[in-house]
Amino acid sequence: MYQIIPPLLFIHLQINYGLSAIIIICFIFILSVGFGYLFYNYYLLKQLVVVQNAVIKQQIAATTGIIHAEENERRRIAGDLHDGVGQLLSATKMNLDALLERLRVIAPENLELTTKTIFMVDEGCREVRAIAHQMMPNVLLKAGLVPALRDFVNKIESRSLKIVLEAVVLEKQLNSNTEIVLYRVVQEAVNNAVKHAGASLLDIQLTIDGDGVSVTVEDNGQGFDTSKRTKFEGLGLKNIVARVTYLKGTVDISSSPGMGTLVAILIPLT
């Protein structure tokens, strides 16, 4: 038996189906546009992160390159100053000394000028030695980080500031590059304390053990507000951060007005 569907009803059903289909299609369309939008946004964000990471990587690479080049250049200039200018001035002084001896007999009227000249050459020798030392201390290359830091601390002339350096080295020597960069970092931190802190006590502690290198530089001076960016950068702390990052380490700078300053550096040994 066949059920007879009236044509009118049949048309009605068809329209109904059509409407639903349209609604469903619209719904799917909206949904996919929504998802597409979300996905696109996500994609954009991801791209941004990738770009940012690349930029950071690039910056680190650039800093690393600069630090590396700078240290090499310093080593070269210090070497040239010592071996070239320094020796030349030393020899010049010796010659003048000998000349002075002869003048004493044959031209005593020139003695004063010669003595003055010798004095100037002597000053030149001292100057060259000081500059070369500042550039790249010989003791750092020859004897390593701890003797170099000891020497650096000994050379600080300050009656009002008491400096204590303690070093514990349980591991073998660090590589020369790491030592040089660490030396600069401690030098910078100590110089900051000496110049700006107005402290009476300065403690430098260095430990090299199985975990890595830890350095703390603490003073009991006036401290500063670490949230003030300009001061932060002006104090050469930015330099410290860049160099520690170069050594793949971390640095904590803790200070507040009246509470002294702590610079704590950690370099994990790989």
Binding site: G86, D97, D122, R129, K142, P147, R150
Partner: peptide
Amino acid sequence: MFSESQVVAEMIDAGISGYILKNTG
């Protein structure tokens, strides 16, 4: 040319009898 105590100390350890700077008069 160097007056660093570490270097001088090592030279003393090596057996020197004296140490003077090159710009010495």
